[in-house]
Structure formats: C-alpha cells, structure tokens
C-alpha cells in the first residue's frame, strides 16, 4: 500500500442531504486504489487558523470514476467551512488512513448510529454475504435508500417517527435479527450497547471508534482508546484509534 501524502484534490459535488448533513464527492485518483471501507481521510480547512485536519470516514469508493464520497455533519467552524465547498474547489487532504473493516462472516449485521452510518455504506457494498442493516437516527433520516440496494434495512428513531421507537438494539430485538458477524459505527454509548449485545449473544463484532485527533497518522497519541491487552506500540493499555483503528474487534478494547 502506498503512503498517504497531503495533497490538494478537487471537489466534484457537495450537497446537503439533510439538515446539517452533507454529501461530498472528491476526485481521488490514486487514493481509491488503496481505500478500504472503514478507513478515513483527513480534510484540511482553507482557513489557516484552523490548523488540524478533520478526520472523516469514507462513505463510498467509486473506482470507475476515481472518486470517494464523504458524508459528514456540520459540528463546528471547520465542517461549516466544508459545507460551503463548491464543485471545482480544491481541498487539502491526506488519506486513506487507519485500519478499516475486515470482510468476513456469512451472515452480517451492520449497525450504524447517526453520523456513524456513512462508513457502513461502502462496507455493505463490498460484503457479499447475507446482510441485515440497522440504522439508528434521532429523528431525521439520511442515506437509508442507498443501503436498500445491499440488504434488508431496519430503522430506529428516538421519537418512533420511522421504524422502531428507541435505539438500534431495540430495532435488532424487535426484528429478531441474528448474525455471525457484527459491524458497527456510531456514538460511544451505542457502541457500548452493541459490544454488550455481541458478547451476550457470542457474536464476533468489529467496532469503528471516534475520538478527537491531531495528526491522524499515529504520532501525537491524542486519539487513544483503552485496550484489553498491552498494545505492541504504546506498551500500555492504549491503542491509537487513527492507526490501529478506527475499527477494532470488540474484544480488543474497553469502552
């Protein structure tokens, strides 16, 4: 795999999907060859005062058109700046970074919560096995139609306006979903719930974690999570989310 270097790449499209959620396609030439589902890219702001790259997970990889899709939520001034990007604009980027999902199993359960949903799309596309896909939202939904091509989609909303009322675990139970592999990405409380569910039901699980990062390449030690074993690199009970992750097996980490 070639080394990800910082370069300027072109915006192909940047549209609002839902209030505060944006759909960005980038021209990614050499990036697409190496990119795997679950990996992320670091996007830089044009405003030089906002120094640090924003790590954003890869939602889709289009090898034919040499482009990648990122779906992100505006959460601060950096992502707000991204939301104003127009077709043809250039943006500095490093990627793909991190360890993505490992494709395995014969019956998969994909579980996404909120802005943790996008990275599961490329995974759903690449997984050839039988798939159930559970998507949890607060209220407004996005991307659910993109998933329907790749598996059975079940939705949970906190207010019950669409699908099961409650969270993703409620939707799994309500629909009696079973699997031999779980893939999940979402907020930490959701991942905790999924981890517990997977342990109780003896299902292998891959979880994609999130943390504030600085470098994104494994040097600054900002984005660590607690590990069950002493990590080979850090020599303490810490793993780097940007390097050994963001995807970990549930039994590798403590949430």
């Amino acid at each position: 795999m070639s080394i990800a270097i910082k370069k300027s790449i072109r915006v192909l499209k940047n549209l609002m999907l839902e209030e505060g959620v944006y759909d960005l396609w980038l021209e990614a030439d050499d990036m697409v060859a190496d990119a795997r589902p679950g990996q992320f890219v670091s996007l830089y702001c044009n405003d030089g005062g906002r120094l640090l790259p924003r790590p954003i997970s890869i939602c889709e990889i289009d090898r034919d058109k040499s482009s990648i899709r990122l779906v992100y939520r505006v959460l601060g001034k950096g992502t707000e700046e991204f939301s104003r990007l127009k077709t043809g604009d250039l943006i500095d980027c490093i990627g793909p970074l991190g360890r993505g999902f490992t494709l395995e199993g014969s019956k998969a359960l994909l579980i996404g919560g909120g802005i943790g949903i996008p990275p599961l799309l490329e995974l759903a596309k690449q997984l050839s096995c039988e798939k159930d896909i559970v998507l949890g939202y607060r209220d407004l939904t996005f991307l659910e139609n993109d998933f329907k091509k790749y598996g059975n989609v079940y939705i949970s909303t906190e207010d019950g306006s669409i699908g099961t009322k409650g969270n993703v675990i409620d939707a799994i139970k309500a629909n009696n979903l079973t699997a031999d592999i779980i893939y999940a990405c979402g907020p930490t409380p959701m991942l905790k719930g999924v981890k517990e569910y997977a342990e109780v039901n003896h299902i292998k699980a891959q979880l994609s974690l999130e943390e504030r990062m600085a470098c994104g390449i494994g040097a600054c030690l900002a984005c660590v999570c607690q590990s069950t074993e002493v990590d080979h690199h850090t020599n303490v009970h810490n793993k780097r989310i940007c390097k050994e992750g963001p995807v970990f097996y549930a039994d590798e980490i403590v949430l």
Binding site: L52, E211, R212, M213, A214, C220, L221, A222, C223, V224, C225, V236, H237, N238
Partner: peptide
Amino acid sequence: PGNPTPRV
C-alpha cells in the same frame, strides 16, 4: 499511560 481523552 497518559491522560484520559479528549486529549487535544
């Protein structure tokens, strides 16, 4: 082991 996160 360092400090708890967020660290940056």
